[in-house]
Structure formats: C-alpha cells, structure tokens
C-alpha cells in the first residue's frame, strides 16, 4: 500500500479543540508541514496568541511561548534577539494583531525584525464569542455590531497586509485564503516563502490568511468557505503585497 498522506511530526497527536470547519486547523497543518520541509523543527520557536489559537502550544511540536493578547511580535523580538539562530514565528488572530496588538506588529515590521507572522483574518473575535474585529466586513453582523458593521460609526475594515507592506522593514507580505484546495496550496507556498525569508535573514515577513469561523459567522463549514470567496476575497484581494526576498 502506498502512503498518500501522513501527518507531519511537527504537529503533536493532541486532538485540536477547533470547531468543525475552522480555518485554524488547516493553517496549523500548513505551518507545521513547512517547518518539517524546511528542516527547522529543532530551532523553531512558536509564539501563540490570545484567541482561539491560544492552545497552539499543545499542537506545534516545537518550543512554544504563550504571549499576552497582541504582544506576540514584541515577545518574539525578545527571543529572536537573544538567539538569532532560532526561527521565530508568531501566530495571531485579527483581534490580537489588528486591534490590541496593532502597535506591536507595526513596529516589529518597522524594525525589520527577522521573524515571521502568520496572521489569521477571520473577520471576527472567535474566542470571545463573535464580537466585531477591525477586519469585520461592512454590514457584517457580529455580537457587538448586531445591525451590521456601520462604517460611519466604526470605520471600514483594516487591510493589514497592504498596511504592513508599506513599511520599509517588511521584506515579504502576502495575503492568501484557505477556502479551497488551490488556495490552500498557494497558502502553503506563501508560508514557506515567509519562513525562507527569515532563514535567509531578509527581514520581517507576514502572511495574512483569510480563514473561516463558521461558529461565529452562523454558517455551516461549507457555507463559511463559500463566504470567504464571495465576501472576503473581494474586499481583501489575494496576492503578494511586498517581496524583496530577491534583493
């Protein structure tokens, strides 16, 4: 019998707590596979966020640090500065990174910190029960925008990848989605490139991943994937926003 799929050893055997259809599980696997393929498991340090991925340290089979809400880029900076040979990545949600941690991510990029950030944009605060995030779409109903996000009242959603790409210290920035197989394959390639960017010492790298939260979107897993395509991608265009990895 030929093996067609094998779980990467960079994921532990612990059963994940994510809801059915949640994008976090997919992205965890992609990140772990990339770490395996690049042969960096023994020197990678994961910084997990406060958000649904808070238990990431149970899943990534590498040394892990649980950071305070939004502060992972600062904490990761501390570790990377101590051991520059470590491959240090942060894994952060959109409440974590784009709201409370906006300063930390901007300045990690601004310093050209040689770390990698995997940014999960699911347009919502998943863990706390579906409140509005800076990335929540206009008109999107959440528990704190029950009539739909009103841009007059709280602005229009923040495009993080584009914003970070404007910062000199950012070497590689791409937005991907995990709504369908072709996009998942592209997402993995982007994540791999982002880690390679760090290995090569080029500067800060960030991959924004449009991801599903069926539970708080009030959708089935299949509907949630469709909604990424129909509603998120038009506002958050996929693609490379910055690439100076060849410089």
């Amino acid at each position: 019998m030929t093996t067609v799929f094998k779980k990467t050893p960079v994921l532990t055997d612990t059963i994940m707590h994510y809801c059915p259809g949640c994008g976090h599980g997919i992205v965890h696997r992609l990140v772990a596979e990339v770490i395996e393929e690049l042969g960096i498991q023994d020197r990678t340090i994961a910084f997990v966020p406060v958000g649904c991925a808070v238990f990431g340290y149970k899943y990534f089979a590498v040394d892990c640090v649980e950071a305070a809400h939004g502060r992972a880029p600062a904490a990761a900076t501390g570790t990377k500065r101590v051991n520059p040979n470590n491959i240090v990545f942060t894994y952060q949600g959109d409440g974590d990174l784009a709201s409370i941690g906006a300063a930390e991510i901007v300045h990690a990029a601004h310093r050209g910190e040689k770390i990698t950030t995997i940014f999960i944009n699911n347009a919502i605060y998943g863990m706390t029960g579906g409140q509005m995030a800076p990335t929540t779409l206009v008109g999107q109903k959440t528990t704190t925008s029950p009539y739909g996000r009103d841009p007059e009242h709280c602005g229009k959603p923040l495009r993080v990848a584009e914003m970070i790409a404007t910062i000199e210290g950012a070497a590689y920035v791409e937005r991907v989605a995990v709504d369908c197989t072709p996009n998942i394959i592209k997402a993995k390639a982007a994540i791999k490139k982002a880690f390679q960017c760090q290995i090569d010492g080029k500067g800060f790298s960030l991959v924004e991943v449009l991801s599903s939260c069926p539970t708080n979107w009030g959708k089935s897993p299949a509907e949630a994937m469709d909604w990424i395509k129909s509603d998120m991608i038009p506002y958050y265009p996929l693609g490379v926003k910055k690439d100076r990895t060849n410089e």
Partner: peptide, 26 residues
C-alpha cells in the same frame, strides 16, 4: 549585548518576557 528602544513600555516588557523565556539575563 543588545539594547533595543521599544515602541512603548508595553512592548518593552513583552520583549523582556521573550528574552527571559529564551533564558537571557534581561
């Protein structure tokens, strides 16, 4: 050694957290 001016005291103490986690005297 490494001196780094952080963007805020919030960031500074979290950098301390990360450096301490890595085993440094910080």
């Amino acid at each position: 050694g490494c001196f780094l001016q952080a963007e805020s005291e919030v960031a500074a103490i979290n950098m301390v957290y990360g450096a301490a986690a890595a085993g440094a005297r910080v």
